[in-house]
């Protein structure tokens, strides 16, 4: 079973993601900010296959989490999808520079998110 970490401070988005991905055999964990995400990653020894993260969040933003995950020297690589409503070019480029695998602008098309998640998980298998 694939493990997915959803980092999102919005109240509704995690519910939507959970509903979109519910049919697949995914185990979803949800945290509400970057600080909790980093704690969760440390606790589980980065035991996730995919991270879906927002950018603008309190304490530590999505870029900090992304940078930490992608700069790890050991362990299996983790795919990261940024889902954010900050859709300006600089933000998107910054995300890809830091190693994001995909960028989705809110509001998302559910089917598109599902396909992108599946594709990334297959690529990282």
């Amino acid at each position: 079973m694939y493990r997915i970490l959803v980092i999102e401070d919005d109240e509704v988005m995690p519910k939507i993601i959970e509903r979109i991905l519910h049919k697949e055999a995914y185990h979803l964990d949800h945290v509400v900010n970057g600080k909790e995400a980093l704690q969760k990653l440390e606790e589980t020894n980065y035991g996730y296959d995919l991270i879906i993260t927002d950018i603008m969040m309190p304490y530590a933003n999505g870029f900090e989490v992304l940078s930490r995950v992608k700069n790890r020297k050991e362990g299996k690589p983790i795919a990261v999808i940024i889902v954010s409503n900050a859709g300006n070019e600089d933000m998107i480029l910054e995300g890809f520079k830091l190693g994001a695998d995909d960028f989705l602008k809110k509001p998302v098309i559910p089917g598109e998110l599902l396909i992108r998640v599946k594709r990334l998980l297959m690529r990282y298998q």
């Binding site: 509704v12 988005m13 939507i16 409503n85 809110k106 509001p107 998302v108 559910p110």
Partner: peptide, 15 residues
Amino acid sequence: NRLTMYRDNVQGAMG
């Protein structure tokens, strides 16, 4: 409020 929150997050046919 709830409908607008959902529409902030999904588009397409669902939106």
